[in-house]
Design a protein around this nucleic acid. Sequence first.
DNA 1: TTCCAGGCGTATC
DNA 2: GATACGCATGGA
Length: 242
Amino acid sequence: MEYFIKLENIDLETTFNCGQCFRRPFNVSQAENGIILHNIKKADIPYWENYFCTDEDYTELIKRFSQDKIMKVACEYAPGIRVLRQDPFEALISFIISQNNNIKRISGIIAKMCECFGENNAFPTAEVLAEADLSLLKTGYRTRYITDAARKVHTGEIKLDEIHNMPYNEARHELMKIVGVGEKVADCVLLFGFHKTEAFPRDVWIKRVMSEYYPNGLPDCIKGYEGIAQQFLFHYIRNNNN
DNA sequence: TTCCAGGCGTATC
DNA sequence: GATACGCATGGA
């Protein structure tokens, strides 16, 4: 069946290309004031509503963010961004790969990873990745980080299910037990995989934003939603860097 | 050739 | 706790 989800000012192109995810679902298309899911079962509807965060009011969020001058500019530049609820394990592995790397190459590595180790091109399981020979992915020094993450998830040393219920600081600490997961990667996983919207990943681009526009810290109007605000800032600065 | 990319681990102070 | 440096790979 086809299924329409009404969402105010979502833009799929921007949402999937603003750096929060490195592969996109193939069964979604843009509609006038929302999106259309194609070839889905009725039982899958809640999954997609959750994925696109239909419970969040972005009109209200952007209005709140726009109290800050810089945020207003960033929101007006790309009002169609929405932060998705992605799969936690995929987010974990993806953002481990992302470190000191560029988005194009990250996407390429993940595509090849799905092709080589995933069931029908799906993202591979922790069980498979934990034992796989990853050398053909050419992930360089990150290879052992991927293996360590997959192994810890597979053995249950890190329980992703439980991280959902942990407060932000505790969850962050838990993820950082994985070799190759520091503060920035942990924050990306918490934001994009666990939808902890207070997580504010500080990468090279955001550090530029901070020193240039927010030398005295983040504005109060993004409190509780720092991560979503971050995504608007990230996309804006990346596309307007002189 | 050198620099950079959604950083992190390690050594050193 | 802060700072410096090496790290795999590929594109500009």
